[in-house]
Design a binder for these strands. Sequence first.
DNA 1: TTGAAAGCGATACCAT
DNA 2: ATGGTATCGCTTTCAA
Lengths: 337, 337
Amino acid sequence: MPQPPKRATVHDIAAAAGVSRGTVSRVLNGGYVSAEARAAIEAAILEVGYVPNTAARTLKMRRSQAVGFVALEPHSLFLDDPNIGAIMLGANAALSLADHQMVSLVVESARDMERVGRYLSGGFVDGAIVVSARTHDPIIRVISDLRLPAAFVGHPPDLERTIPYVGIDNQGSARAVTARLAATGRRRIGMIAAALDRDSGIDRLAGFRAALGATFDPELVAEVPHYDYGSGVKGMRLLLERDPAIDGVFAASDAIAAGALETLREAGRTVPGDVGLVGFDDSTWAVRTQPQLSTVHQPAKEIGAVAAQLILRQLSGEQPTPAGQLLPTPVIWRDSA
Amino acid sequence: MPQPPKRATVHDIAAAAGVSRGTVSRVLNGGYVSAEARAAIEAAILEVGYVPNTAARTLKMRRSQAVGFVALEPHSLFLDDPNIGAIMLGANAALSLADHQMVSLVVESARDMERVGRYLSGGFVDGAIVVSARTHDPIIRVISDLRLPAAFVGHPPDLERTIPYVGIDNQGSARAVTARLAATGRRRIGMIAAALDRDSGIDRLAGFRAALGATFDPELVAEVPHYDYGSGVKGMRLLLERDPAIDGVFAASDAIAAGALETLREAGRTVPGDVGLVGFDDSTWAVRTQPQLSTVHQPAKEIGAVAAQLILRQLSGEQPTPAGQLLPTPVIWRDSA
DNA sequence: TTGAAAGCGATACCAT
DNA sequence: ATGGTATCGCTTTCAA
C-alpha cells in the first residue's frame, strides 16, 4: 500500500519562514501578527506549496464544515424522481453560502446503509439532511444516538419527535385539486395512489378521500408501487377496468399522470374532454404532455434551502425546534383539467 | 459555538476494560490479543457506547476510505441528464464492494468549484471520479498538482494525459447509426447536434460527418446548446425550415429526439414513414415515445463501475495507466428508424 | 507579537 | 500478548 506523496505542512512553512507554527496558524486563520512575519509566511506558503489538511483541522476543531445529504428512496432515486435533484441543488446553494460542503451519499443496499451510518458518525460531517426516511431506517438511530444535527425532508418517522423537518402539505393540496375536479362537474373521480409506504403517498390519498367525503369509493383508487410512468399506465388500466365511466383522475405524480394520459388516449378517451386529469410535482413532465398537465407545484429548491437552514441553525447553537414547517404548494391549472 | 457532545474514545474503552489503548486498537483492527482481554474490551465498548472517530483515523492512516464523485455538467445536471445518475449508481456499487464511501459533490457556482477543490485536497477523499471536465476547470489543476488518484468519465482534457479515463466511442456509434440511416434509403439526412463545447457533442458530430462523407451538408446540422427536450424542438424546427424535404435525423440525445418527434408530428410528418429518427442514450425517453426510438445504448452503470475500478486500482498501488478505455455501445433498433 | 507545548483520537512501533 | 510512547497536522492556551 503506497502512501500518498508527502505534502507540505504548517511545520514546513514555519521552518521556511523562520517562525513558529503558532504564528503560521495565526496568519492562516487571523490573529495578531506583524507585517514582516506575515509577508515572510505568505512567501513561504507559496514556496513550499502548502495545502491545508482538512482532516487534521477537523480533528482539532471538531468541525468538518461539511453536511451530509442522504436520500433514502427505494432504489435509483436520481433516475426518475425529479424532485430529489432540485432539493439537492437548493440545499447545496444554501450550504454553499455558509461555506459548508454538501456531500451526498447514495444508499442502495444494506451495505451502503451501514457504511453511510459509519460515515455520518465518524466526524466527516457536522450534520445531515435526510430525505424520505422510514421509521426502521438505521440512519435514524445513528442520528438520534449521536445527536447529530439533522433535518428531515418529509414527515419524520413517528418515533422521532426531536428532529426538525420541512415538507409540503400533501394532504391539503390533494384535497384542493380533488375538490376542483368535483367542482368542474366530474362525478366519477378516481385516484392513482402511489408509494403508500411513505407519508407523501399516504397523505395524498388521505386528502383525496377527505375531499370526496361521502362520495368516496375505494373501488376508484388504484394502488401502485412507485411514482413513475409505468405505474401510471398500470394504474389507469385498472381504473378503466373497474369503471369505464370514470371522468376524473388525480394522479399522485406527474410521471404517473403522463402514463395515465397515454393509456387514456389508447383507450380512446379525450383529456380533458372525457376525463379530467391532475398530476403532482409540476415537473418537466407536466409541460411536455399534450395537453399540458394541471398539477401541484412543489417548491423543491426551497425545500432544500429550508432543510439546509435547519441544519445551519443547529450548528450555530440553536436548539432544534422539533416542529416542522410546511411550504405552500400552489396548484397550477393548465389544460388537462 | 457549541461543541458536539463528547463521545467515548479508545482511551475510555481502555480505562473501562483496564487495559492499554494499544490492546484496544488491536481488538478493533486485528492482532494478537488474549481471549479474556478481548472479552473485557468488547464489553467495555458496548458499555461506553464507543463510536470510532474516522477523522482521527484518517489523519493517522492517511486514508479516508472515501472517493469523491464530481460532475461538472453545466448546471442542474441531475435534473435532465439521465446518465449521470446511472453512472453514480454504478460507481457507488463498485466502491461499496471495496468498502469505500462515495461522496458526490455538486458544482454549480464558482464558489462551489473552489470549495470542492479544497475539499478534495484536504484529505477527505482518497481519490476522485470526474465527469465531463473541461480543460479550464480548476478541479483539474487541483488533482494534477496533488497527484490525487483520479479517473475521468469522458475524454480527459488534452492537457492532461496522465489521468486514466473511461468513456464510449461517440464517434463510432454516430457513424454507425448515420450509415444505417443512409442504407435504409434516406437521402436528406440532418443532425441536431448539442453540447459542442464538450467531447461527447463534438465526437457525435464528427461521426455523423464522417459517415456522410462527400454528401455531408453543413446546412443540415442544427446546433443547439443542451441535450434536452426543448433543444430538440428548436433544432427540428430549424432543420425543417432549412430543408422541408429532410427525411432522416440523427439527434444527439433521446431527449432531443423526443422534442424533434413532437415537432415533426406538429409539422405533419410521420415517423418513420416520412422521416427516420435516431436518438442517443437509450434512456427512458426512448421507450416512452410513440413510436419508440431507435437509439445508441450507453452502458452508464458499467461506465461508473469502470471509473471506480480505475480509482481502486491506483489506491492499491498500480500506476495510473494514462490510457483510456472505451466501452461498447450497441445500437438498439426500435421503430423510429 | 511571538514561541513552546499541550491535545484532538487513533494507530503502530518497540520493548517487555 | 501487552503497555508505553511517538506521531499524523493543526489550533490554541499560556508565558514571555
